[in-house]
C-alpha cells in the first residue's frame, strides 16, 4: 500500500514531466544560489525573477518564446537598477525595490489586458503540471548551459564573491565575472519560472544556498549540499502535491523552507551541545 502510494503519481506522463522540470530547475537554481547568498544578491534574485513578467507577456504578444522575453527583461532590470544606483544618490536596495516592483506591476497590468488562449496567470504561480514540449526543451537547454558555465567559471566566481578587490588586484576580469553572474541569474530565473512561477522563483534562488551555508563551512560542499537538498524537496513537493491535491510550486517551496528550518534547528542544537 505504501509503495503504491509512493509510486502512483509517477505512472502519469504529466507527473513525470513535472518532476523532471522541477528537479532540473531546482538543481540549477540551487547551484547558483550558493553564489547569490554569499555575494549578498538575494534581493537582486528577487528583482530579476519578478521583473521578467512583462517580458513574458511582450514575448507572447510578439509570438516569441517566453524565455527570450523573460531573459531580456531580466537583464534590462539589472541594467536599470545599475543606472539608477550610479546616477542618483538612491542606495542599491531602494533602486532594486523601485525597479522590480514597477516592472512586476507593469507585468500584472499587461497580463490583465492581454487576450490570451493560454493563461498568462500561470506565469505568476507556475503550471508545472501542464508544461509544454517547448518549455521542457527550454528548461533542459538553459539549465545545461548554466551548469556548464558555472562549472567552468567556478573558481573565478568564488574568488570574486569572496574578495572583489583582490580579484581585481590579481587581474581577474571582475566586471565580466559580475555580468556573468547576472546573466546566469537571468537565465536561471527563466528556468525557475517554468517550474514554480515568477512569484516563488526567488525562493529557489535563495533557500537552497542559504540552507547549505548553514550546514557547511566549505564552499565545495555547499555546491553538493544545496542541489541535493533542492532535488529532494522537488521530489517531495511534486509527489506531495499529487497526493494532497495542492499547488506543486507552493509545496516545493514549503519543503525548501522546512529544510531550512530543520537545518537552522540542527545548527542551534549542535551549537548548544558544543558550547
Amino acid at each position: 500500500m505504501t509503495w503504491e502510494l509512493l509510486a502512483e503519481p509517477w505512472q502519469y506522463t504529466f507527473m513525470q514531466r513535472a518532476l523532471l522540470v522541477t528537479v532540473v530547475a531546482s538543481v540549477v537554481c540551487a547551484l547558483l544560489s550558493c553564489w547569490l547568498v554569499l555575494v549578498g544578491w538575494s534581493l537582486m534574485g528577487d528583482a530579476v525573477s519578478h521583473s521578467v513578467l512583462p517580458g513574458v507577456v511582450l514575448a507572447y504578444l510578439a509570438g516569441l518564446p517566453f524565455a527570450i522575453g523573460a531573459f531580456v527583461m531580466g537583464l534590462g532590470a539589472v541594467a536599470l537598477i545599475g543606472a539608477v544606483r550610479q546616477t542618483t544618490r538612491v542606495k542599491e536596495d531602494a533602486a532594486i525595490g523601485v525597479v522590480f516592483t514597477t516592472l512586476f506591476a507593469l507585468g500584472v497590468v499587461l497580463v490583465s489586458v492581454t487576450p490570451s488562449q493560454v493563461d498568462l496567470g500561470h506565469i505568476l504561480v507556475g503550471n508545472v503540471l501542464g508544461v509544454s514540449d517547448e518549455a521542457l526543451a527550454q528548461v533542459l537547454l538553459i539549465s545545461a548551459a548554466v551548469v556548464l558555465v558555472v562549472l567552468v567559471q567556478r573558481r573565478d566566481l568564488t574568488h570574486w564573491a569572496f574578495d572583489r578587490t583582490h580579484a581585481h588586484v590579481v587581474g581577474l576580469p571582475v566586471n565580466r565575472l559580475r555580468w556573468t553572474l547576472l546573466v546566469l541569474l537571468a537565465l536561471t530565473a527563466v528556468v525557475a519560472l517554468q517550474a514554480v512561477g515568477v512569484v516563488l522563483a526567488v525562493a529557489m534562488l535563495i533557500i537552497p544556498g542559504a540552507t547549505a551555508h548553514l550546514l557547511t563551512d566549505r564552499f565545495s560542499r555547499m555546491l553538493v549540499v544545496a542541489p541535493t537538498l533542492a532535488a529532494t524537496c522537488a521530489v517531495v513537493g511534486t509527489w506531495g502535491s499529487y497526493v494532497l491535491d495542492v499547488s506543486s510550486a507552493g509545496l516545493v517551496v514549503v519543503a525548501q523552507g522546512s529544510a531550512f528550518a530543520l537545518a537552522w534547528g540542527a545548527v542551534r542544537v549542535r551549537g548548544r551541545a558544543t558550547a
Partner: peptide, 10 residues
Amino acid sequence: DEVDKDFPVT
C-alpha cells in the same frame, strides 16, 4: 574588516 569571515573557505 573587509574580509568576509562567514565565507565558506579555508
